[in-house]
């Protein structure tokens, strides 16, 4: 687990098409906008574009709230069977999460004005979801959304 956290935190940004550094609150909107554009460009349905944008917005806000600074990295992957996939990696070198399962419980929050449904909500919005975290090192969240065929 610890090894994986480090690996993900050091993942080179060059491998991604879009990298947004989250430093100020406005950066959340920038990250959301970029994710939206990429999803639209790949021909995702309107509902899925909104889901991807919302998930990125949540991830960016988590970084801003709990780690102050971090990165949102977005890339697309073209798969042979099935449509293209958008992968979003959110990394920060913040305090880390002690108990990932607890954080994924609906309604759990350490932030007073939050609904506490962000991370668990992201999991429901996306097709793939993984949190890797180590206290004192940082947190990495990887999510993916596949374009669905109709």
């Amino acid at each position: 687990m610890a090894r994986k956290a480090k690996e993900l935190l050091d993942i080179p940004a060059d491998d991604f098409e879009m990298v947004v550094r989250i430093v100020r609150e406005e950066d959340i909107a920038v990250a959301r906008q970029m994710a939206k554009q990429l999803a639209q460009g790949l021909g995702f349905s309107l509902a899925d574009v909104t889901k991807v944008a919302t998930a990125v917005s949540e991830l960016a806000r988590n970084i801003y709230r709990y780690a102050q600074t971090g990165k949102i990295m977005i890339r697309k992957r073209l798969e042979e069977n099935g449509g293209p996939t958008i992968q979003v990696v959110a990394v920060d070198r913040g305090p880390g999460i002690e108990d990932v399962d607890l954080v994924l419980t609906r309604g759990y929050t350490t932030y007073e004005r939050s609904l506490g449904i962000g991370l668990s909500g992201i999991r429901r919005l996306m097709d793939f979801f993984e949190v890797v975290s180590e206290v004192g090192t940082g947190t990495a969240v990887v999510v993916e959304k596949r374009r669905r065929k109709f």
Partner: peptide, 13 residues
């Protein structure tokens, strides 16, 4: 909007 409605339900808002 419909897409937002869906997202809200998924998020649990």
């Amino acid at each position: 909007k419909p897409e937002i409605a869906h997202t809200l339900v998924k998020l649990g808002v």
